[in-house]
């Protein structure tokens, strides 16, 4: 089995938390627009800190994803023609590429715009939503890795409940 070192799994957690914070920031932006724009208020501070976490998390996550992809193919006894026979690994390869694109987008947009990314709806909706999509993909990919290695995952009841079939 192609196994990443444990250190490579941190970005999965970071990006999943970034997705949760993106959802919270999106809700705060819509519901408390005035308060998050008022410097010095507690809500503005929390909003700003979450925004920074999402930005820094995207950068760390992007680097971690690249390391994860490289180490995923490093197992000499597990060549590519065997890896692609396994549906879970096919899912991980395909959606890792999509996640890389998503967090590359997030990094570029946030770097260019700074916290002005949260000013216009045409910017903050796509920004928050793609980060949420990327985080959920990372969470599912982590769960699939767990299922491959340990035949179970703490996500199993949730995805059973939603109706997503498990291998």
């Amino acid at each position: 089995m192609a196994i990443h070192p444990v250190f490579v799994h941190f970005h999965t957690g970071i990006l999943t938390v970034a997705a949760a914070l993106a959802l919270i920031n999106l809700v705060l932006r819509i519901l408390f627009r005035d308060n998050i724009n008022t410097p010095g208020t507690r809500l503005a501070k929390i909003f700003h800190e979450f925004d920074v976490f999402i930005y820094v998390g995207s950068i760390i996550g992007f680097i971690g994803l690249i390391v994860g992809v490289i180490t995923g193919f490093m197992e000499p006894e597990y060549p590519l023609n065997i890896i692609i026979q396994t549906p879970e690994l096919r899912f991980k390869i395909l959606w890792s590429i999509v996640s890389l694109e998503i967090f590359l987008y997030a990094m570029i947009v946030r770097t260019k715009l700074g916290d002005r990314v949260w000013v216009n709806a045409s910017t903050y909706f796509p920004y928050a939503i793609v980060i949420m999509v990327g985080g959920v993909l990372m969470m599912i990919m982590g769960a699939l890795g767990g299922i491959l290695e340990y035949h179970t995952s703490i996500l199993k009841p949730i995805l059973d409940w939603i109706g997503i079939p498990w291998p």
């Binding site: 694109e101 987008y105 947009v109 216009n120 045409s122 796509p126 793609v130």
Partner: peptide, 10 residues
């Protein structure tokens, strides 16, 4: 999709 989003943002 991301290029379109990026264009709208930037």
């Amino acid at each position: 999709i991301l290029v379109i989003f990026g264009y709208l943002a930037l």
